[in-house]
Amino acid sequence: MLGFIIQRFIQAVGVMAVMSVIVFFGVYAIGNPIDIVIPPDATQEIRLEAIRRLGLDRPLYEQYFTFLANLLQGDLGRSFVYNMPVLELIGGRLPATLELVLISVISATVLGVSLGIYAGYRPDSWVSKTIMAVSVLGFSVPSFWVGLILILFFAVHLGWLPAGGRGDTVMIWGVAWSFPTLNGLSHIALPAVNLALFKLAMMIRLARAGTREIMLTDTIKFARAAGLSEATILRRHLLKLISIPIITVFGLELGSTLAFAVVTETIFSWPGVGKLIIDSIAVLDRPVMVAYLILVAFLFVTINFVIDLVFALIDPRVRDGASA
């Protein structure tokens, strides 16, 4: 097991190193931020001064190694636009995204897996057919359109829920959170539903396919022949047997939603990191873009690592294979 962890760690370092090169040079290729940072009517002197101050006069590889050296010391640079440390900037936005995404991904998974198991267990009932029809909708309707419709209906037409913003927040560990207050929760509701819809549909499909397949196996027949109740079979046998693909997709969805909930955060003016990155791209705030993408790579490496650990926890064959 220890060997497995070390091996994964080395892999992770490699991935991160490659990622830093691609991101740094890729972002450099997008355009020169100096034209956006400096007002067009600035004198040539101010312009050169700004270029030197931001370190943009150095050769690219030198800029990269400076960045790398700072990164290893935990310094991701300062934003050109906000003139504050990038880490602080992202850290201040992260809780908003974190609470929105966790609430939506977790509830989509719990609800989706339950509905999917039902639909797979009783494939011929009209309830299951309804569930599957709804899941097709969840796949095919674009999320920005759903977001607009949600606002039109629940915020504008019915006036039940706010159309955007975070609402009342509470300070925990020095950062602001919306979920502990009722008003905050009412602000989370619509964007969370918007984000959850696609994931819900996917979880339903995954759980249904797994259930249909597993229920026909001899493992289930044998459990039935031993007199186990259907509830026990579903809880103790089926849930574990269908969990591997569900956990994989859960991890990937969690990662990509945390990183790129851009559309939903923009529609609901949710001050999270997705909105930060899209704004940073618009003004070519290079340190924010680079730091953000590096952090996203780190996020995915971490999530994949945790998923592998969870697999080993669930499946003894993986555990034995990994230690051998």
Partner: peptide, 30 residues
């Protein structure tokens, strides 16, 4: 009555047992 008064075993022992539960867990469920 299934498992208590009448029970059944199958052809393929690899497919009948749940690979994710220990033998003890599966026996205790039964």
């Amino acid at each position: 009555r299934r498992g208590r008064e009448i029970s059944m075993i199958f052809q393929d022992p690899i497919a009948t047992l749940n690979p994710l539960l220990t033998i003890g867990q599966q026996m205790q469920l039964a």
